[in-house]
Design a protein around this nucleic acid. Sequence first.
DNA 1: ACCTCCCGCCATGCT
DNA 2: AGCATGGCGGGAGGT
Length: 798
Amino acid sequence: MENEKENLFFEPHKRVLMKTPLKESSTPNMVLAEIQPDFGPLTTPTKPKESSQGEPWTPTANLKMLISAVSPEIRSRDQKRGLFDNRSALPEAKDCSHEHLSGDEYEKSQPSRKEKSLGLLCHKFLARYPNYPNPAVNNDICLDEVAEELNVERRRIYDIVNVLESLHMVSRLAKNRYTWHGRHNLNKTLGTLKSVGEENKYAEQIMMIKKKEYEQEFDFIKSYNMEDHIIKSSTGQNGHPDMCFVELPGVEFRAASVNSRKDKSLRVMSQKFVMLFLVSTPQIVSLEIAAKILIGEDHVEDLDKSKFKTKIRRLYDIANVLSSLDLIKKVHVTEERGRKPAFKWTGPDISPNPSGPNTVIPFASSDLEVRRSSKENCAKNLFSTRGKPNFTRHPSLIKLVKSIESDRRKINSAPSSPVKTNKAESSQNSVTFPSKMAQLAAICKMQLEEQSSAPPQKMNIQLARSGPCKPTAPPDTPVNAELELTAPPLVQPLGLVPLIPNPMSSAMPVILPQGPSGPPYAIYLQPTQAQSMTTPQGLSPAVCPASSSKGAGSKDYTDATTEKATSAATKLNASTKPGNLLPAPEKQAAKNRDRESTGERSSKRASMLEDSGSMKKFKEDLKGLENVSALMVSPTSVAAVPVGNSPALASSHPVPVQNPSSAIVNFTLQHLGLISPSVQVSSSPGPGTVPVSPRIEAVSVLPETSGTQQGRATRYDSPVLGQNQPNGQSGAVAGAQQPLPVTPKGSQLVAESFFRTPGGPTKPISSSCMDLDGANSTSLGTLFVPQRKLEVSTEDIH
DNA sequence: ACCTCCCGCCATGCT
DNA sequence: AGCATGGCGGGAGGT
């Protein structure tokens, strides 16, 4: 049945989008090219790869050239293969039959591994759909088709979809069919994940693990026990009718045992992974720790190597997708033991409350139901409705819900949803890594495509949206976007700023006597959290932007800074008090989206590229900044504000954080979560990266994956920006480009909109339940975390 | 040599 | 039984 049904669905818009001539604008992709004639066969199409045929030559040649210019790799490759032959220059074009190439060459011409990366593939995938799709339209995704169009095995699509599903960005409709929700529910999902993560005490777990590590191998089994409790209890379920997908986060570990596949599911892992970011204060999570926690929940100690390795592999897969979504970026954490791969959250700040700006959920349950018809709603409801009777929930879940609700209430009055801005973006702008150029280029191409298609969609969406669906005007709305854009670019140097927020009134400031050398810091805690914390002296909020860079990028830098600062301030407020402060949610939302005007960024970026020389310096600066930022960030509820400025920041040198005397402080901070256990962050921006925006909140790291990041940097939805896509997915554009000539394919959109059957995404309810029992508060209390130093560095790009 | 992570075998589970 | 899913880990590209 399903099959048939599935087949029946049309995906008008997609097809339109993709296949349409949008391309003219740019990309060569073949992605577009392949048109699948039919949905046909339900059966799995085996590798599409072969299918690729040449694409018709695209007008985009110019673009290609441009891209090529940027990316040597591609360039060379193209040259080899004959750039302008029918095929697109894109990687996908594997098919390029070696036309003129000799064996060797041929091989070389083949897409490099990077070009086949999941991250890139994900970008392509994302490029096909709007961030904020019009629910009214048919947003179905046919996996087979996508696989074919993207020229990848279906298996790879599953990887992407599973992660997206974990974020509720898609939901399974039927066999081989998914519905695209885009980012509509993202904030909610993240809020929920955060809540769950908190409930699961992931932050604590992380600490324990660190602690353990540090404590030489001596294992405290105890600590683990704790974890176990926490973790394991979960077997509940929550099947939300609404929820498109079931597995709620963290939850089902144990349960999984039942279903062997489930617990290991990429989806679950993905959610847990995300939770780790959301609950940890410097939102940086090393793969190692993530793997341990994910596995580990069971028994970290015994984890055998292979298991660990496997986990890591999976995490990379997930990370690639998340990176493509601009939710995280790669960084490195350096400890004594060496450098460890890690990822930094670059997504929106999420308040535990499950909702974002929208959060305040306007819908009544009844309403919900009604709306539910649309898939989108489904997803939304997911979280938003927490109270909903319908759901079958596990007690723990209920608990969670309650707490959430209460929080929500608090917050309601103030629209505050803490959503924050994405900081990442700023940084993104700046970076470019030569090495990653190829990816970049590819991404750019994709983006171009995307854009071309996207804009129109957005518009439609808005219209549609205005309807019942979104009571809250969230981020998507153009308005918001604009706000964001318009938002005053603060020029203030980071350091200064907002870090010291007065607003924190609600928070309880604690002044810590500083250790030997440092100035005292005041930390504002949320009452609830009340834990003691201290800050290391070296930290100061101030960042020094300066070095940044040479002119190029400076602007971005500034902006970024500003943003960050702002956001930081916001956060603080938010964190401090959920309820007050936040200005309009929308605003925040807006921030999240992109803040940048693409044009500027692009140009900057270009310049940046040139000036890679300054990178090092930059890096250093960044490090310093990062350190600071780490402290600063307190997404959750803790905010630390340094009372004085510390010089350290200003300095170009990082490492400061570790002040010997401050060991205690660090310790404390770690516990509190102010600082990640180890963390010193040093970022080493990639070579190309220039001006990174130091964001207060988080460490600004340069993106490792240049591709991804870059994409961000450049996204330019701008033209349409306002419209719906605040967050645009990654729009990566090559630096130089501008928003350009995106060809609006809008018209198509319109067409699309017509009818989409909201079939309910029926997904079997899953039974995951989260067991939150154990999770009461997050008190770290007893744990002792050895202090170590870490540095976070952005990945180098070489 | 290590980090990433692509690739695709093959188990699992649903028709 | 056949196909859709997706766990898993070998092994290769990249640095």
